[in-house]
């Protein structure tokens, strides 16, 4: 029997993997991907809890999360391309424009 808790634990594991990826990686594109993974884990728990309570709220939140993720990715990748044009690198350790 698969209960809601199974889905929540799976979502927690995926979220943690995303967190570790954000901390470990040096490539901002991959860091972005890890953020997407975290969003997805949150979406999974939204839908699992929505079914648990028999409500549509969970799925609605996921729809908005999807739209926001799409917007975030388009702008974020635009920023990465712009930084690459200016600095010829996208390693997050070497991008410290504000520090000079």
């Amino acid at each position: 029997m698969i209960t809601t808790s199974h889905f929540l634990v799976l979502s927690a594991i995926l979220f943690t993997t995303g967190v570790v990826g954000v901390l470990v990686k040096r490539n901002p594109i991959v860091i972005f991907m890890c953020v997407e993974l975290m969003l997805n884990a949150a979406n999974l728990s939204f839908i699992a809890l929505g079914r648990h309570f028999g409500q549509v709220n969970g799925q609605m939140y996921v729809i908005f999360a999807l739209a926001v993720a799409a917007a975030e990715v388009s702008v974020g990748l635009g920023i990465i391309v712009a930084i690459f044009r200016a600095k010829e690198t996208i390693n997050v350790d070497e991008i410290n424009l504000m520090k000079s």
């Binding site: 739209a67 926001v68 799409a70 917007a71 388009s74 702008v75 990748l77 635009g78 920023i79 712009a82």
Partner: peptide, 14 residues
């Protein structure tokens, strides 16, 4: 509106 702003922002950035 958010998506529209994102489209414009991405074009200006890139």
């Amino acid at each position: 509106i958010l998506l529209l702003v994102a489209v414009v922002g991405a074009i200006i950035m890139a």
